[in-house]
C-alpha cells in the first residue's frame, strides 16, 4: 500500500483516495484527531480541536437533546444517522449537508494548526459523515487557504489558538457607535479571559475558523484584547481539623458506632420506645 509511505497527512489522504479506502485514519499529536474516510472521500473529522457535527447541532440547540437520543436509539450505525435526523424532521437535508461538510473543513483546519504526529489506519468506525464526502485535494487546498488568510490578517494561526481574549471594559452590548451582528455579540458574550478560540467554538457550537475570524474582527474594533489574569492563591488548609480538645497523639482511634441493624419485619432496634405491636 503506497499510502503507508506518505510524507504527510494530505499526501496520505490523496493516496487513500486513489485506493478508495473506507476506514479510519488516527493521527496522533496535539490535539490530533480521527479522520473517517468513505470510498476515499473524507466523511468526517473528529478532533478535540474543533466541534464535531454532534457538538455543533446539540450545543447550539439546533437539535434538542432528547430528540437526538430518540433518533440514536433507532439507528445503531451512526453513519446512517443523518437520514434518520432528516426523516424525523429535526433538520433539513440541505442544512445537515452544510453542517457536516463545514465540520469536515473545520476539523481539518484545527488539525493543521499544530504539527501532526504519526498516524495509523484502522477499520471503518461509525461516524456522522457527510455524503458523499469531501475530496482530499479540496480539503487540503481549503485548509491551506484558511491558514494563509489568517497568517496575512493576523499572524501565526498557531499563536491565535493560544490567546484567551477578554472583553475590553465598556464594550457592553449597548456600546454607542458600534453596531454588532448577533453573531459577533454572541462571541463577545462568551469571551472571559479563560477561553481560547477553540473553547469559544465549543461553547457556541460554531466552527473554530469562523470564531477566529470573528475574534480578529472584534479585536480590530477594540472590543476584545488578548489577555489572561493571574489568579490569587490563598486557600484553606486540608490538614485534619483539630477538635476543640486536642486528643493525645497516642490515643486510640475514635470508636465508630455502627448504624442500627435492620431486622426483617422486626422494626428498628433504635425505636424500642415506640409502642409495640400486637404480635
Amino acid at each position: 500500500m503506497t499510502a503507508h509511505a506518505a510524507r504527510n497527512v494530505p499526501a496520505l489522504l490523496l493516496g487513500l483516495r486513489d485506493e478508495g479506502f473506507s476506514g479510519t485514519v488516527r493521527v496522533s499529536g496535539h490535539p490530533g484527531g480521527t479522520i473517517h474516510l468513505r470510498n476515499g472521500l473524507v466523511g468526517a473529522i473528529e478532533t478535540p480541536g474543533a466541534p464535531t457535527v454532534t457538538s455543533a447541532l446539540l450545543t447550539s440547540g439546533r437539535i434538542d437533546d432528547e430528540a437526538w437520543l430518540a433518533v440514536c436509539a433507532t439507528e445503531p450505525d451512526v453513519d446512517r444517522l443523518g437520514g434518520h435526523l432528516v426523516a424525523a424532521g429535526l433538520i433539513g437535508a440541505a442544512e445537515l449537508e452544510v453542517v457536516c461538510a463545514a465540520a469536515v473543513f473545520d476539523g481539518a483546519f484545527a488539525m493543521a494548526l499544530s504539527p501532526p504526529g504519526s498516524w495509523e489506519l484502522s477499520d471503518r468506525e461509525p461516524a456522522l459523515v457527510t455524503e458523499p464526502g469531501v475530496e482530499p485535494q479540496q480539503l487540503t487546498e481549503e485548509t491551506a487557504r484558511r491558514v494563509a488568510l489568517l497568517s496575512r490578517s493576523w499572524g501565526a494561526p498557531g499563536e491565535l489558538t493560544r490567546v484567551r481574549p477578554v472583553a475590553v471594559t465598556g464594550s457592553g452590548p449597548r456600546r454607542p457607535g458600534v453596531r454588532l451582528t448577533r453573531r459577533h455579540q454572541g462571541v463577545l458574550d462568551h469571551v472571559n479571559g479563560r477561553r481560547t478560540p477553540r473553547d469559544l467554538a465549543f461553547a457556541l457550537g460554531r466552527g473554530l475558523y469562523a470564531v477566529m475570524l470573528d475574534l480578529i474582527r472584534l479585536e480590530a474594533l477594540h472590543l476584545v484584547r488578548w489577555d489572561t489574569r493571574a489568579a490569587p492563591d490563598s486557600r484553606p488548609s486540608t490538614a485534619p481539623r483539630p477538635s476543640r480538645t486536642p486528643p493525645p497523639t497516642d490515643a486510640p482511634a475514635p470508636k465508630v458506632v455502627p448504624l442500627p441493624k435492620r431486622r426483617p419485619r422486626g422494626g428498628s432496634p433504635g425505636h424500642d420506645a415506640a409502642p409495640r405491636g400486637g404480635s
Partner: peptide
C-alpha cells in the same frame, strides 16, 4: 487521602491527554 480534584471539560475534551 485527603483531597479530591473535580474537572469540568467541554464536549471536545481530549480524554487521552
Amino acid at each position: 487521602d485527603r483531597a479530591l480534584l473535580t474537572v469540568k471539560g467541554d464536549d471536545g475534551l481530549d480524554l487521552a491527554a
